[in-house]
Write a protein that binds this DNA or RNA. Sequence first.
DNA 1: GTAAAAGCTCGAGCACACTCGAAGTCAAGC
DNA 2: GCTTGACTTCGAGTGTGCTCGAGCTTTTAC
Lengths: 133, 133
Amino acid sequence: MHMHPPQDMYTIQQAADRAGVTIATLRYYEQEGLLRDIQRLPNGHRRYSDQDIAWLEFLNCMRESGMPIQALKRYVSLCHQPGTGRARCDLLTDHRDVVKDKMAALQTQLERIESKIGWYEDALAEQALEANA
Amino acid sequence: MHMHPPQDMYTIQQAADRAGVTIATLRYYEQEGLLRDIQRLPNGHRRYSDQDIAWLEFLNCMRESGMPIQALKRYVSLCHQPGTGRARCDLLTDHRDVVKDKMAALQTQLERIESKIGWYEDALAEQALEANA
DNA sequence: GTAAAAGCTCGAGCACACTCGAAGTCAAGC
DNA sequence: GCTTGACTTCGAGTGTGCTCGAGCTTTTAC
């Protein structure tokens, strides 16, 4: 182990590990404007702050819950404009509704799958009985 | 309204409407082997039976719950081989677990989103107060 | 001083699941 | 008999979200 003279800053690899994404994804998000104002060392290397990581984790949460990059871009650009609190909140509530609908759909599908599994298990049990007969 | 002299058979358009997919998707699924033995009229037009529709609805449930086409292909080919009940059931239970995990993840993400919405609503309420002051 | 490790940019490529367009067939209606 | 509309095949194209490779620089380790 050696010291980290600067501050609470992370290399791109460390940031990727922390947020559970690839380095390529980090650069891609930055290019798309989802991650802004990432610091650079004099040699051009990125340095991610704790704040950056937190923001990245938020992006991740949105992406994993199914928000498209485009919507996230809209949200991010709102975040860089003052007086857009209502619009941002609306975007989030819209997405929340989408997530809720998705969960409801998954619940229905899960039930259907489980009923099919039940059907198979019955059939397999019966087959086992026949084999024993 | 007019009669349907043949039987309980549907044109590709009717089948698409019933299953909530496009005609193109129906042909694609057939090409990929997810739908097999679809009847044809002498002129080559497809005719879908109620059974076909039911199967299609099952495919849909799997797809919408996130099963990839590849996995469905595997399942379908097992369905055309006797003595594969256990393997099919295992495939379904694996998918069920995936769906459950996905729901759990969505639940966590939903909570996070809702907490952010709460934060916005507080901030917006406070802002409204200031405006009234 | 040299080689490996980690970073950089840029543009191209990929996986998935469709989706579309061209060119043709066929049956029904006017 | 000719148009309209629904169907056919086939191969190519699309959108999304990354992901990779080439070619380069810089820092670290020996």
